[in-house]
Amino acid sequence: MSTELLMRQETWNITYTHALGETASWFYVQLRDHAKLYGKRDAKSGRVLIPPRSFSDQTLEPTTDWVEVGPGGVIETFSIVYEEFNGLPPPPYAFGYVKLDGADTAIGGYFKGVDLSDPKAASAKLKIGTRVTTKFAEKRAGDVLDFWFESDAG
């Protein structure tokens, strides 16, 4: 006689309240209140890091001055994602990384202004190396969803 095999389903609903620290807080306040993006300079290497960090993970020196970057930049990589993610707007998502003017690292964000129903055509419009401009939401929460990139070619 075969055993009836049971499954046990559990759902956890735990809330985490993460401290962002001074550096990320300042970055998100500038984004929320002034619609501007800033990187932070590693004085030892001279590199401007965005997303900004309080220290460089290459030199392990504290970063020093804030540097406004963008709003223009270049697409470094890109994907179209079809899975739905918790806490994000409905899919599909066009997302990737952009090296903003004045920065030495790329920041992750969304691409808008492109029809994603035809991924081949969309990917041609958002080809790596394409110049983009950062756009800002009218109502900003101090979050990555406050900004996105649009191709300069339209």
Binding site: P51, F95, G108
Partner: peptide, 18 residues
């Protein structure tokens, strides 16, 4: 949770970026 949680990142989407 600071800069990347609000992006649709899992292993396969990171592999897609690569």
């Amino acid at each position: 949770p600071y800069y990347h949680r609000k992006l649709p990142l899992d292993e396969v989407s990171s592999h897609a970026l690569q």
